[in-house]
């Protein structure tokens, strides 16, 4: 059974509905899956999550979470989903412990009953349980928010940009926690603007301008990249990029870490490219074949 089924879901904002935040999105998430919605800021990820957690009413289309319709059975959904908004939204003037107890109570449960689920996360902030939530560090706030979202043992967990603004170490830790939760059978939907986190998900959906560009496992998505991808480096990187873009047999070129990535048209030759670049006065030109990443796929899908 699918934990989340989304069919042609749309949401518009503005007086005349002129801002189309989510445009006819359809996808499915199976039970126990870790599904990532990947896209830049303003892609419509939060709107999608807010509709699925019954905070927003969709304008069109339908969706169900754990078999309950998001419009009709919203009361049922509120009992079984956990939602962690992008912005820290717990009571800053209540302590760690009080926040957790409060959320446990309004879900009609106790911390004790579900302690096993949050134990791994909560032990890390337990030494500060008397501290006000507002006085915690970013990473600890994150853990507290996750604990609060989990306290009623949700079937589906929605995490809206949980790692935005969190340092690299905490991000890694956070993903490890998600893996553990997944192993307990919780379906997790996570949105993130970081492409490098895509590989950690079972399946991902690439989102841009309210549309879902592609859905699949990270491998499937990278495999769908049909062109040859080269990485190119030289001493003057800025001039190099201009020259690559101007080159005939290159579909597109963009900077990618210490290299530039060049998507090649068919019937190109590395030798000719090398020659062209050296003629233009580039020194120490390095050209290599490379495997496309999610980001490359995203760049390509965006252009379509």
């Amino acid at each position: 059974m699918n934990a989340v089924v989304v069919h042609n879901l749309s949401k518009n904002y503005g007086k005349k509905n002129e801002i189309k935040a989510v445009k006819e999105i359809s996808f499915e998430v199976s039970t126990g899956e870790l599904f990532g919605v990947i896209g830049p800021d303003g892609a419509g990820k939060s709107t999608l999550f807010r509709m699925l957690t019954t905070l927003l009413l969709p304008d069109n289309g339908s969706a169900s979470v754990d078999g309950s319709d998001i419009v009709k059975d919203f009361k049922a959904i509120r009992n079984k989903v956990g939602y962690m908004p992008g912005r820290f939204s717990l009571y800053q003037d209540l302590s760690v412990e009080e926040n957790l107890n409060f959320f446990a109570t309004i879900f009609n449960t106790t911390v004790k009953k579900n302690y096993d689920l949050i134990k791994d996360i909560y032990v890390q902030i337990e030494p500060f349980k008397k501290r006000k939530a507002g006085k915690l560090s970013g990473g600890m706030k994150q853990k507290l928010a996750l604990s609060c979202a989990l306290i009623h043992r949700p079937v589906v967990l929605f995490l809206d940009e949980p790692t935005t603004g969190v340092d690299a170490v905490s991000r890694k830790e956070f993903w490890e926690m998600l893996m553990k939760l997944k192993s307990q059978g919780i379906t997790i939907l996570v949105s993130t603007p970081y492409m490098d986190e895509a590989g950690l998900c079972d399946r991902i959906g690439l989102m841009q301008n309210g549309k879902l560009l592609s859905v699949g496992t990270p491998k499937e998505i990278t495999a769908s990249f049909s062109q040859t991808l080269l990485e190119v480096k030289s001493e003057n990187m800025y001039a190099l990029l201009q020259q690559l873009i101007a080159y005939d047999s290159i579909m597109e070129a963009y900077s990618f870490g210490e290299y530039h990535h060049a998507v090649m048209k068919e019937n190109f030759s590395i030798e000719k490219l090398q020659q062209y670049l050296e003629e233009k006065g580039n020194k120490n030109v390095v050209i290599k074949n490379t495997v496309p990443t999610i980001e490359d796929c995203f760049m390509q899908l965006m252009k379509k």
């Binding site: 957690t53 019954t54 905070l55 009361k75 509120r78 009992n79 989903v81 939602y83 908004p85 912005r87 820290f88 939204s89 717990l90 009571y91 800053q92 959320f103 309004i106 879900f107 009609n108 609060c148």
Partner: peptide, 13 residues
Amino acid sequence: EIGTIEQINVTPI
């Protein structure tokens, strides 16, 4: 303003 109402609204309260 703080956003806590959002967190409350997703609960069955």
